[in-house]
Design a protein around this nucleic acid. Structure first.
Length: 132
DNA sequence: AGCACA
């Protein structure tokens, strides 16, 4: 019985070492092994694209606004690029607001036009698509 | 950082 158990354990240990043994290719190439967390595992089965925080939408979500920003200011700002349907501010969370356009083509154009616009020197506004 | 209206 001891023999069988010992043999099995030994086999598993050997397999584990063989798996780690694939990495020395990195060591040879870079001179140091990168953390395992940074190595994309072979196959790359996960198809997650990091560049796509929110799906394109006709509604824009803006943050990093100065707390003194009024809907009228946003209205005038965005109106010069496209006619929008509505602007809404979130009072419970100061510094964020929504601007709703008629379609996502216009919202995209306005977003890029006003991306990083400084309402004040300290507050370049950050615009993304709204979640919903 | 934080996502509200209808």
């Amino acid at each position: 019985m001891e023999v069988l158990v010992a043999g099995k354990n030994k086999k598993e240990q050997h397999d584990a070492q063989a798996g780690l043994g694939l990495n020395p290719a990195y060591v040879g190439a870079y001179g140091a092994a990168p953390p395992l967390s940074q190595i994309p595992y072979p196959g790359g089965v996960k198809s997650l694209v990091p560049e796509a925080p929110a799906p394109p939408n006709n509604i824009l979500f803006m943050q990093n606004l100065p707390h003194e920003t009024t809907p009228l200011m946003l209205q005038m700002l965005f109106h010069q690029y496209h006619v929008f349907k509505e602007v809404r501010m979130v009072e419970t969370k100061p510094g964020i607001a929504f601007v709703e356009y008629t379609d996502e083509m216009q919202s995209t154009a306005a977003m890029q036009a006003l991306q990083g616009f400084k309402i004040t020197q300290q507050n370049p506004m950050l615009i993304t698509y709204a979640k919903n």
